[in-house]
Every structure is written in C-alpha cells, then in structure tokens.
C-alpha cells in the first residue's frame, strides 16, 4: 500500500517537508516503548506512536523505520521535526487514537509480521 493511502486511511496530516508519498509500505509497528521498536520493528515499516520527543526519530533512524505517525493529534516539538527532516523521515499526525489507527489499518489489510520467539 502506498504511504499516501495510509495517510488517507488515518486522516493524517503531513508535518514534514519530507513526504515520500509514493513509497510502498507493507508493515506497521505500534508502540510507545522505544526499546520495543528497536527490538521488534520490521525494517522499512511505519511506526505508530503516542510519543513525540526527538528520541522517536532517532529510534526510527536506528531501526530503519521509514515513517512515523503520531496518534491523538499530537504535534511534535520543532526539534523532532527538524531531526526528522535531517534524517529524511516523514512525520504524520492523525486524530485517531493508537487503538483506532491500528484498527483501521488492520482492516485495510496491513499487518505486522513479527512473531515473537518466546
């Protein structure tokens, strides 16, 4: 699915100059714990999170996450946006909660393929 379609599904708003609207995305990770993202997120997936600090962008960069969607209409501070632009990671803000955003995207056919090994 195209990034632009995902943005439309969650009624999202792009908040960076970096857009990458034409990239194809197949996986979503949802988490507020950055270590969890580092441990389990698929490379090239999109991160859904309720956290807005610059560490989210840094985490995404380390884990090869390709875009971040902030839930509940959260607008990240300027330092988060400037770091994302520097690292070329598009940021989107959605009015939906984590629960609803996950629900909509799951229904649209997106999956996460992480199968825990414990």
């Amino acid at each position: 699915m195209k990034f632009r379609e995902i943005i439309a599904i969650v009624k999202g708003e792009l908040i960076t100059k970096i857009a990458k609207l034409d990239m194809d995305v197949t996986h979503i990770s949802a988490a507020d714990l950055m270590s969890d993202v580092l441990a389990f997120a698929e490379p090239e997936s999109i991160l859904l999170t309720g956290l807005c600090n610059p560490q989210v962008v840094c985490t995404a960069e380390m884990a090869d996450i390709v875009a971040i969607i902030f839930v509940r209409d959260k607008k990240p501070p300027p330092e988060t946006i400037s770091l994302a632009e520097e690292e070329r990671i598009p940021l989107v803000s959605t009015p939906y909660s984590m629960f609803e955003a996950c629900g909509c995207l799951y229904q649209a056919g997106l999956r996460d393929i992480h199968i825990p090994d414990e």
Binding site: L33, M34, S35, A39, T49, L51, N53, Q55
Partner: peptide, 12 residues
Amino acid sequence: EMGFGAGMGLTN
C-alpha cells in the same frame, strides 16, 4: 514516560 527504561536495553 519518554519511552525508555522498560528493561529491554541489555536484551536488545
């Protein structure tokens, strides 16, 4: 609250 300190660092 910043998303760290959940006890996964060394495991990761």
